[in-house]
Design a protein around this nucleic acid. Structure first.
Lengths: 172, 172
DNA sequence: TATTGTTATACTCTATAACTATA
DNA sequence: TATAGTTATAGAGTATAACAATA
């Protein structure tokens, strides 16, 4: 490996007199990458890693068609094919024919898939706890609450019809 | 474009009875991606995008050698070469010979680079404000503070010598 | 002999296009 | 004609390896 000799980004920022507290982007990136890294480790043996988990978790609620699953998780439908190939090979999900449309396949976790999901969720919980390790119990709650509000807002904004799609709908 | 028909991830989670507040990973991902998207838009015309900005901002403090810059930002040294090629072509940074080592190059923003940096920082501030838009003023401060503490902790943990490197140092 | 920086090459991930089978 | 899913292919982005110049 040639890259990333781990020198602290923080140290140099402080040396330059920049206030860390003022840089949302830096903090957000560090925390997110740390969580991403920890959860990727937790999901290491799962085909598709974090995305394999998302597929498993999403399909666990109710059997979903491949294309819907892809749309929901924001992955390309071709990627979804590969992802499901691997998960199916590992015996974690199965493709069932959709009785109402013979072109479509319904994706559902197998029994083994459900068991794996339980275990994975427990491991992810540990990763979360580790990331929040710097905060006291009460602070964690506050942080989670505020973050969740930002996320809900961001999620809504991102999916709200924009000016263009509204305009398209209007010219009827 | 075939991918990502924007259906709300949130809606489906709620339909499944999962509590959003409990899922740190989901919230962190949504908020981070939203910030990443907004800041990428803000840095659209800058060679290298967000990473070009990081290079510019880091080199602005004091001229740095390419390899140090690469290590600090966690990018491969070969990627740094391409990045600097583009930034130099745009007239934003210059490679100066290091007087103390003729192999090395010191990277420093040009005057144009400094001007661009000012403008970019202003644009990034707007992106930050947009992401934090869901919170009241006092809440923003709390959120920033808690996030910063997590980030500082995570940054330290990530760069602290681990058991292996400590052991290596011991057998002297 | 080791290190800085460059270049060429290979690999990984993802998207595009073309295909089949249904509708 | 349009859609669900598959496959093959091409395209970014990134890393690996070999190289020249210097230490």
């Amino acid at each position: 490996m040639t890259s990333s000799p781990p020198e602290s980004d923080l140290r140099s920022r402080q040396a330059r007199g920049m206030s860390v507290e003022d840089d949302l982007g830096w903090a957000l990136g560090v925390v997110f990458r740390r969580y991403a890294k920890r959860s990727a480790e937790a999901l290491d043996d799962l085909p598709g890693g974090p995305r394999g988990y998302q597929v498993l978790a999403t399909a666990a609620g109710e059997a979903k068609r491949q294309l819907d699953l892809a749309a929901q998780l924001g992955v390309d439908r071709t990627v979804m094919t590969y992802l499901l190939d691997d998960l199916e090979k590992a015996g974690l999900v199965e493709r069932r024919p959709d009785p109402s449309d013979r072109r479509a396949r319904l994706i559902a976790p197998t029994e083994k898939g459900f068991e794996a999901l339980c275990d994975l969720e427990r491991r992810l919980q540990l990763a979360e706890d580790e990331v929040l390790g710097g905060l006291a119990e009460g602070e964690r709650t506050v942080f989670r609450t505020l973050l969740a509000r930002l996320a809900v807002k961001a999620d809504a904004v991102e999916h709200v019809p924009n000016a263009c799609s509204i305009a398209e709908g209007l010219d009827a």
